[in-house]
Design a binder for these strands. Structure first.
Lengths: 342, 342
DNA sequence: CTGAAAGCGCTAACAG
DNA sequence: CTGTTAGCGCTTTCAG
C-alpha cells in the first residue's frame, strides 16, 4: 500500500540512506541526487511512516492533555488554547477526560497509553495534596490547577488568592458591604474554592468588614445548576446581601439567573462578580463582571514548558511554579465606583 | 530505562515469545509458566511499548477528531461525547482544530499526522460540496456536519431540514405568525444555515404563512455576538415580529439578550427558539426552547461506525448515511400552545 | 506448550 | 557525498 524508503530509493536509483538524508534535509547532498530523490518521492506520493520514526527516535510528536470535562466551558477554552499552542509548535494533542475523579486521574498517570505521547499537561481536580507523590514519574509532566502544590513537577497556575482578593476589593470599593459567596467547598483549604474563599476573607479583613458565614453558600461541583441552587438557598435563608461573588463564572451566571427570577435587580440591588473570564460571560444579561485569571497565558506557558522538558530531559533543572497575571474585566453586573458616579 | 520483553523473558527464564503469549493471553500456556512470567512483569514494572506494537500491527489505538473550534460549546460537547465513547472502546482521541477554514481542512486530510491514528471523525465546515472528492482517501473516515453530502464516505449527521421545520411548526402552532430568523447565510443551499432555513420555509409554506425576507437576518459566523448583532439589525429595520428562530442556540441566546435590553419581553412579546440542544440553553433567562438534533447519538454513532470501518477495512461495504432523531426541548422562551392556555 | 528468527519502516554509526 | 548495516520492541510464522 503505502510506499517506503526502499521504494523511493529503488525508483531514484540511490540507497535508502540517501533518501533519508534528503527527507531530514541533511546538508551535504549533491543537488542532482536530491532532485532525483524528490522526484521519486513525489511520484510515489511517499510520506514517512511516523510510527516507525517514533519507535526509532523515542519521540511521538504528540502530547496529552487531561482535563476533568470538556463540556465545561472553562476546560473547553483551555483545551482550545492548548491545542492551538501545540499546533504552532508542530505537535498534536491527545485529549483525555477524567471526570475530576481521583481514581481515574491516578489511573491515567500510570496508563500505558501515555507512551503514545511525549508528555502530559495534567489538570488535576480529584487528587489532593496527599497525592503529590504520584506525580513523580519518569515522564515529562506539567501540572495545572490548584489541588496540589509543591509537587516535584512544573506547575502552571493562576494567582487564586490574589485574584479573588482583588475581585472582593473591587466590590468593596464600589460600596458593597454584604458580599455573598456561591460555590464554597466545605472545609477546603487548597483547591480553587478554598483559595478563592481565602482571598475573599483577606479582602474583607483588610477592609474591616466582618466575615459572615450565613451568606456563604456551599456546593460540590461547579455547574450552572449549582450556582442557581446556591442562590436559592441564600434567598431561602432570608439573609440580606448587596453583592454575590461566584467562585467561577458558571456559578455566577446560574446565581444571577435566580436573582433575576426573584425580581432582584442586577446590579442595582445586588452586584454579581464571577471568576474565570469565560467568553460567554460577555454575553449574559447583564454582562458579567469577572476576573480573568490569565487562562490563555496558562495554556501557552504549559505547552512551552512541557516541550522544553521534553527537549532537554537530561538537564532537568528544578521544578518551577509559574503564575499567570490576572485582571478584572469590568462589565455590567458589577460596575466600578467610577461607573456608579457617572 | 523502561524494561522490554527481553528483560522479562530473561528474568522469568523463558523465551520472549512466551512472554508475548502471556501478555496477549494466548490460551495454551502452562499455569506455572504463566505465573512466573507475570511475576517477572510485576517485578520489573514492565509495560509493553505501544509504539513498537503499532509499528508491528499497523494499528495505533487512537482516532483523530477534527472540529472547527473547541471553544464553541457545540463542538466542545461533541468532542466530550466522542472522547467518552472512544474511551469505552479503549481508544484515545487526538483532537485537531481547523478553524472552519477550507484550506486547513484540506491540509488536515492530507496530513501525515493522520498516520498516528487509525481513522478520522471529521466535522467539516469550510469545505463545500465540490470538495467531496477530497474525502475519498485510503483511510477510515467518518464525516460529520452538513456541508457535504453523497461523498463516498460514511456520514453521520442530523435531520436539519426536518428539525428546523418542526421547530417552526412548533412556533406556528403556538400562535406566532411573524417569525424572524437570525443566522442565515446569504445564498447558502447546503450547510446548516441553508438547510435549516429551508425547513423554516417549508413550515411557513405548509401553513400558508408568507415568507418575508425583511425579517431574515444574515451573519457569517455563529458566535453569540453575531446573534446580538443580527437582532440589533432587525430592530433597526423597524420590522415587526412575534418570534425569533435562532439557527443555533448561541445565536438565539445573543438575540435574546438584545431583545431584553430593548425592553421586549420574552416570551410574551417575542418567543425565542434555538437549535442544538446545548446544556447552557437550560440556564439562560428565560431558559431557551430549542431543538435537540441528537448530538450525543451522533457522537456515539460516529465512533462506532469508524471503529467498524477500521476493524474490517477489507469488506468495505457501501458508504452509509446515518441520521439522528431530533426532538424539541420545550422551555420558557417559547411555550407551546398548551402552556399559554394554562 | 515453547523457542528461534524474521521483519514492520526508519535512523544513525560507520565505512568507504 | 553516499552505501551498508544494526537495531528500536514487538508480533508472528515456523519448528520443535
Amino acid at each position: 500500500m503505502a510506499s517506503t524508503l526502499h521504494d523511493v530509493a529503488r525508483l531514484a536509483g540511490v540507497s535508502i540512506k540517501t533518501v533519508s538524508n534528503v527527507i531530514n534535509d541533511y546538508p551535504h547532498i549533491r543537488p542532482a541526487t536530491k532532485a532525483r530523490v524528490e522526484q521519486a518521492i513525489a511520484d510515489l506520493g511517499y510520506t514517512p511512516n511516523l510510527t516507525a520514526r517514533s519507535l526509532r527516535s523515542g519521540r511521538t510528536g504528540a502530547i496529552a492533555l487531561a482535563v476533568p470535562e470538556l463540556a465545561l466551558s472553562y476546560f473547553a477554552e483551555l483545551a482550545a488554547a492548548v491545542i492551538e499552542a501545540a499546533d504552532e509548535a508542530g505537535v498534536v494533542v491527545l485529549v483525555e477526560q477524567t471526570g475530576g475523579d481521583r481514581d481515574r486521574e491516578l489511573e491515567l498517570l500510570r496508563s500505558p497509553r501515555l507512551q503514545m505521547t511525549d508528555g502530559l499537561i495534567f489538570s488535576a481536580l480529584g487528587m489532593g495534596q496527599d497525592d503529590a507523590e504520584h506525580l513523580e514519574r519518569p515522564y515529562p509532566l506539567v501540572l495545572l490547577g490548584e489541588r496540589i502544590f509543591d509537587a516535584p513537577v512544573d506547575h502552571v497556575t493562576m494567582r487564586n488568592v490574589e485574584a479573588a482578593r482583588a475581585a472582593t476589593e473591587y466590590l468593596l470599593a464600589s460600596g458593597r458591604r454584604r458580599i455573598a459567596v456561591v460555590g464554597a467547598h466545605p472545609g477546603e483549604v487548597i483547591g480553587s474554592a478554598g483559595l478563592r474563599l481565602r482571598g475573599y476573607r483577606e479582602a474583607l479583613e483588610a477592609a474591616g468588614v466582618p466575615y459572615d458565614d450565613s451568606i456563604i453558600s456551599e456546593t460540590t461541583t461547579w455547574h450552572r445548576s449549582n450556582g442557581a441552587r446556591g442562590m436559592r438557598d441564600l434567598l431561602d435563608r432570608g439573609v440580606t446581601f448587596d453583592a454575590v461573588f461566584g467562585l467561577n463564572d458558571t456559578l455566577a451566571l446560574g446565581a444571577m439567573r435566580v436573582l433575576q427570577e426573584a425580581g432582584i435587580r442586577v446590579p442595582e440591588d445586588v452586584a454579581v462578580m464571577g471568576f474565570d473570564g469565560l467568553d460567554e460571560a460577555q454575553y449574559s444579561i447583564p454582562s458579567l463582571t469577572t476576573v480573568d485569571p490569565g487562562q490563555r497565558w496558562i495554556a501557552r506557558t504549559a505547552v512551552a514548558t512541557l516541550l522544553e522538558r521534553i527537549r532537554r530531559t537530561d538537564a532537568a533543572g528544578e521544578p518551577r511554579l509559574l503564575l499567570a497575571d490576572f485582571h478584572i474585566a469590568e462589565r455590567e453586573s458589577a460596575p466600578s465606583e467610577a461607573m456608579i458616579g457617572a
